[in-house]
Design a protein around this nucleic acid. Structure first.
Length: 430
RNA sequence: UCCUCGGUAGCUCAAUCGGCAGAGCGGGUGGCUGUUAACCACUAGGUUGGGGGUUCAAGUCCCUCCCGGGGAGCCA
């Protein structure tokens, strides 16, 4: 008798099959026990009757949750059963009798659940989130592939910093002294566009910020695109197509998983181009009109973002920030030198920033000055400056946070549930 | 780093003005032939995060340290 996956039950009705999996839940009523089995493809209810199964029945009836089993039985269509099918069991082999499982059926707090993350990941809700995360990453790759981008794997150990040097994790690197864990692959992507035109990277990113909020992880996954001959507006057009593609594809193919985690999917149907675009100065006017005392030159805070996204039913770009609030590599605005050609994309429903992007500075001397103005050492950026010496062209790019995007699409309060093993300020275990 | 909230049974929480430390779930024992977080009965389970102090008396008040949640700054 062949092993059968629960997801294939519809093709095996009334057949005798073998299923291997774990006991997700268990109920009993005298002479009959109901085991909810999980096999990695789905869940089903297995009916075990005392009179059929024999001597092993008392042990099955008290089997600890998450014990692993190999069961034999007939697949029956049954509307009362979760999943629509159930298994009438005539034979059971206990592969491993579990110890008392720490995660119970009732509510738990975040501290406990995070300390048990390796076991928490077996919960139905976490399983759905992991499936949606997988799908989102697949659609991200698909979008870039369809649109002529080449995947470039950028290094994790770096000697140049993309953002602010105070937020780097440093690592001893043999006799070369300090290297840093990558904050961004962007600078390296820029080196690839003369050869490949449009490139992207997708990988882990490390930020040593002492952030303790629902939007921050110290280790997170970012996808970054970099495009030759794309100017600021081309960059925004691409980003809204990209985000729309990922959201619509997720809705089309993962609606069942979204419903399992009780995501209201109606607001997501609306995520199609064009998105809203307002300038930093316009955002400031809106915020001041709402009673904020935000000053020109300061970045938008979490509350500011929430306030603005609440006014729009689609994602909104905030364009052209003051140069002093942004990274050194952003291109100076041609008419207003105190601004840069950049945009952050804020997701609706209060989720806030999911993309940061900009046109890059392509003038060698302006870039050099910008590096010096930011207190960075031009010596370390020799290779990066070379890119402006050998056929410099206008180019743009952006980075999208995978966890923030998954949190938004799934409707989760906190990014910690969107990654299998979250790394946070006070948590690197398990 | 700063602000704020919290730490009581394995888990989630309660305990009035400082006055006998409790419940649900989970565990154990037994019952029930169709359960849907199954249910019913009984039962075991505590250095109230650590240390110090005030008091006749501290889970409760004070000091201090540790751990965690939420937020700020910063960012995706």
């Amino acid at each position: 008798m062949e092993n059968c996956f629960i997801s294939d039950f519809s093709r095996h009705v009334d057949e005798r099959v073998t299923v291997q999996g774990w006991v997700a839940n268990r109920r009993s009523s005298g002479r009959v026990s109901f085991l909810i089995l999980r096999d990695g493809t789905g869940i089903c209810q297995a009916i075990v009757e005392r009179d059929t199964i024999g001597d092993i029945y008392p042990e099955i009836k008290k089997l600890p949750l998450e014990s692993s089993l190999r069961v034999h039985g007939h697949v029956v269509k049954e509307e009362r059963s979760p999943g629509g099918y159930e298994l009438h069991v005539d034979g059971i082999h206990i592969i491993h009798k579990a110890e008392e499982f720490p995660i119970g059926k009732k509510e738990h707090g975040p501290d406990f659940l995070l300390s048990q993350r390796h076991l928490w990941l077996r919960s139905p809700r976490q399983i759905s989130i992991m499936r949606i995360r997988d799908a989102i990453i697949r659609y991200v790759r698909e979008f870039f592939s369809i649109n002529g981008f080449t995947l470039i794997d950028t290094p994790i150990f770096t000697t140049t910093c993309g953002e602010d040097s105070t937020n780097l994790f440093s690592v001893d690197y043999f006799d070369l002294g300090k290297t840093y864990l990558s904050q961004t692959g962007q600078l390296y992507l820029e080196a690839l566009i003369p050869g490949l035109g449009k490139v992207y990277c997708l990988g882990p990113t490390f930020r040593a910020e002492r952030s303790k909020t629902r939007r921050h992880l110290t280790e997170f996954w970012m996808v970054e695109g970099e495009m030759a001959f794309y100017e600021h507006k081309d960059n925004l057009d691409l980003q809204e197509q990209f985000v729309s593609y990922v959201v619509q594809k997720t809705l089309a193919e993962k609606e069942d998983e979204l419903k399992k985690i009780e995501r209201d999917i109606e607001p997501l149907r609306n995520i199609t181009p064009p998105f809203y675009r307002i300038s930093y100065d316009e955002a400031l006017e809106i915020l001041k009109g709402k009673g904020s005392d935000i000053q020109w030159g300061s970045d938008l805070g979490g509350d500011d973002e929430t306030l603005i996204t609440g006014l729009f039913d689609k994602p909104v770009f905030i364009e052209c920030y003051p140069k002093k609030t942004k990274a050194f590599y952003m291109k100076q605005h041609p008419e207003k030198p105190e601004y840069v050609l950049c945009a952050d994309l804020l997701a609706p429903e209060g989720y806030g920033e999911i993309i940061g992007g900009s046109q890059r500075e392509d003038d060698l001397n302006v870039l050099l000055n910008s590096i010096r103005d930011n207190g960075l050492d031009p010596e370390r950026y020799g290779w990066y400056l070379d890119l402006r010496r050998f056929g410099s062209v206008p180019h743009s790019g952006f980075g999208l946070g995978i966890e923030r995007t998954v949190a938004w699409i799934c409707g989760l309060k906190h990014v910690r549930e969107t990654i299998p093993f979250p790394r946070m300020l006070y948590r690197a275990y398990p």
